[in-house]
Amino acid sequence: MIIGKIIKFIEAIKLKRLIRKLNVSGSNNNISSSIVIYYPERVSLGDYIYIGPNAEINGLGGVEIMNGVIIGPNLVLHSANHTFKNSKYIPYDETFDFRKVTIGENVWIGGNVIITPGSDIGEGCIVGAGCVISGTILPLSIVVGNPCRVIKSRDSEHYYKLKKENKIYLKEKLEKNLKPEINLNYKE
Rank of each mutant, 00 (worst) to 15 (best):
G128P: 00
H158C: 09
L170A: 06
E181Y: 05
K164P: 01
E175D: 15
K161C: 11
E157P: 00
V127Q: 02
D155F: 05
L140F: 06
E165Y: 01
K164E: 14
C131W: 02
I182M: 06
N166A: 09
E175L: 14
G128Q: 01
C148M: 11
S156P: 06
E175H: 10
I182V: 12
T136F: 10
G145I: 09
V144A: 07
L184S: 11
E175S: 13
N166Y: 00
E181S: 11
K171W: 08
K167P: 07
Y169Q: 13
S141Q: 03
E175F: 05
L162V: 01
C131S: 15
E172M: 15
E181L: 14
K164H: 08
N183F: 06
P180T: 09
Y186W: 13
I151E: 04
V143Y: 00
E165F: 02
S134E: 14
V132E: 03
V143R: 01
N185F: 06
L174N: 10
S153F: 08
V150T: 13
V150F: 00
S153H: 11
Y186G: 11
K161G: 04
K173Y: 13
C148E: 02
C131Q: 00
K171R: 14
E181F: 04
L140G: 02
L140H: 08
R149L: 05
I142Q: 06
P139Y: 06
P139L: 09
L162G: 04
K173W: 12
G128W: 00
S153V: 06
V143M: 07
K152I: 00
S134F: 11
I151H: 00
G145R: 10
K163D: 05
Y160T: 09
G135P: 05
C148Q: 06
S134C: 14
I182K: 10
E157R: 10
E165K: 15
Y186M: 13
Y159Q: 08
I137S: 04
K173P: 05
G130L: 05
H158D: 10
H158M: 11
N177W: 03
C148N: 05
R149G: 04
I151Y: 04
K179N: 14
P147R: 07
I168C: 08
Y160R: 12
Y169H: 13
T136V: 15
E172G: 13
P180F: 08
G128R: 00
Y169F: 15
N177Y: 07
C148Y: 05
Y169G: 07
P139T: 10
E181Q: 12
C131H: 01
K167L: 15
I137F: 04
Y169M: 15
L140R: 02
I133N: 04
K176D: 07
L170W: 08
Y186I: 14
E181K: 15
A129K: 09
R149H: 11
L184D: 11
C148A: 13
I137D: 01
S153P: 03
N146D: 07
L184Y: 11
V144R: 07
L162I: 03
V127A: 04
V144M: 09
L140K: 03
L138V: 12
C148F: 06
I133A: 02
L184I: 10
E165Q: 15
